[in-house]
Simulated scan of single mutants.
Amino acid sequence: MSLRLWDVYFLVVAAAVTAAIIIVDGFSFELRAGSIAAIATMAALHILVGRPLVRREAVGTAALLVCLTHLLLFGIAIACVPLATWLMFAVLPIFFMMVTLRRAIALVVVANVIPVLLELHADPGGIGIDLVIAAISTASGVCIGVWITRMIEQSNERADLIAELEASRAEQERLSHTAGVAAERNRLAGEIHDTLAQGFTSIITLVQAADPGLKDERLALAVRTARENLAESRALIAALSPAALASASLPEAVRRQAARFSEESSVPSTVRVAGEPRHLPTPVEVVLLRAVQEALTNVRRHAGAGEVAVLLSYAASSVRLVVRDDGCGFDPASSEGFGLAGMRARAAQVGGAVTVHGAEGTTIEVEIPA
């Protein structure tokens, strides 16, 4: 039941009980006025104080004081006109909405004891039937309250799950879009490098071989034009490459990624470079940088690690990147996600391979011939 519908329900019950108190015979004007005033105060208390607390889901001291005040006013209304006991239908749900389940059950018991004590004071001989009614009312009130509480909890859990799934889907779409854009940029950079840049270099080499001194003005112009276009090609390759590689070498870019990871996640990380660093083809450096970014992102989101180690190893005919964490690990065969699949695809484009171990922590190894 939404809060607005509950307000309508509460006010309808209060109005119905008030009308019954006005109509019923056998009570003085003062007693009727006292009971109605107590009911009106309860309604005002709920609208002005209780409702904002329910909206904020506040279950602390303020909410408990509101419930105790409702109990006091409920007792006053019954003491004046016993017919006000029917107000129980509006009072009991308030407790389950405003305080913890244990406190709500205790308040329900007290609310059902109040009419019994007042009846005992007015007519000690008829207490038996009142006790039976109070026991039934207490049991049914507690059962309904517990059921409502469980339903609300399940509804909140479903809402949280739906929100989490929507966020996950949005994140997957973002990653897919980012990976697609990065893959296309890398492909274009590789195409420019392998075709235009190589072609211009070949033209310059062939022309200079034919006329080393470039005495022929037409050949000199051709060389200048080829060099200018080669510079433009290299500028395009640089623009299509990751910004991290535009202003730093691959080892420096990897160290920056690890430092940023530690700053954002508070997980210590170390970076070690083995072998003699050397310039690698742009597509290879892009794949390695993307791999370390994706691996560190997975550690931050899923691993629960206490430490991360990154190794960048240069060998004579290959380069190897290893990212190892001491987190919870996983089974790569059954739970490989989009990130690892994209990492494998990018590595395959440059002739490399990705190996994943998840038994004790997680180890991701990318090896590329270079």
Rank of each mutant, 00 (worst) to 15 (best):
E294S: 15
R272K: 12
G304M: 08
R320S: 07
L312S: 01
G337Q: 07
V356W: 02
F338M: 12
L289G: 06
Q293K: 09
A341W: 04
S335N: 09
R301Q: 14
G304H: 14
N298L: 04
A341L: 03
S335P: 01
D331N: 15
V271F: 00
T297P: 00
A291T: 10
Q349W: 08
V292T: 14
V350Y: 11
V286T: 14
P277A: 06
V286D: 10
G275C: 13
A345N: 06
T282L: 04
S318G: 04
G329Y: 07
V354Y: 05
R300M: 02
V310G: 08
G275Y: 03
A316Q: 09
V273C: 05
R301S: 10
P281D: 13
Y314R: 12
R320N: 09
P281Y: 00
V292L: 04
V267M: 03
M343Q: 10
R301I: 09
E276L: 11
G304Q: 10
Q293R: 02
L280V: 15
A295N: 08
A305S: 13
Q293V: 12
D325Q: 05
T355F: 07
G306K: 11
V319W: 03
E276G: 02
A295W: 01
C328M: 00
R344S: 13
S335Q: 10
S317M: 00
V322N: 03
A274K: 06
G306E: 15
A341K: 08
G329E: 08
V267Q: 01
G304C: 03
A345R: 07
P281G: 05
A316H: 09
L288N: 06
R290V: 06
Y314A: 03
E294A: 09
E294R: 05
V308L: 04
H357F: 00
L280W: 03
S265W: 02
V284Y: 01
P281A: 14
G337H: 11
E285I: 03
V350T: 13
V354M: 07
T297E: 12
A305N: 10
S265Q: 06
A341R: 11
G329Q: 11
A315F: 05
V323L: 08
D331C: 14
R272N: 15
S334G: 11
G275S: 12
R278K: 13
G337C: 01
Y314G: 09
F338Q: 04
D325Y: 06
F338C: 04
R344N: 04
H279Q: 10
V267H: 02
A341N: 08
P268W: 10
L288T: 13
A316S: 15
F338E: 06
V284A: 15
R344E: 05
A353I: 09
G337M: 04
P268R: 08
L296K: 06
R272V: 15
V322H: 08
G275T: 11
T355C: 01
G342H: 15
V323R: 10
T282S: 14
G339W: 00
G342F: 12
V267F: 00
Y314K: 12
E276Y: 08
A316C: 03
L296Y: 07
L340D: 02
L280T: 02
T355R: 10
R301T: 11
G304Y: 08
A347R: 01
S317H: 11
R301F: 00
L296Q: 11
P281R: 13
H357C: 07
E294L: 07
L312R: 08
A347S: 07
R278A: 09
R324T: 11
P332R: 05
S269E: 06
G304N: 04
A353R: 07
Q293A: 14
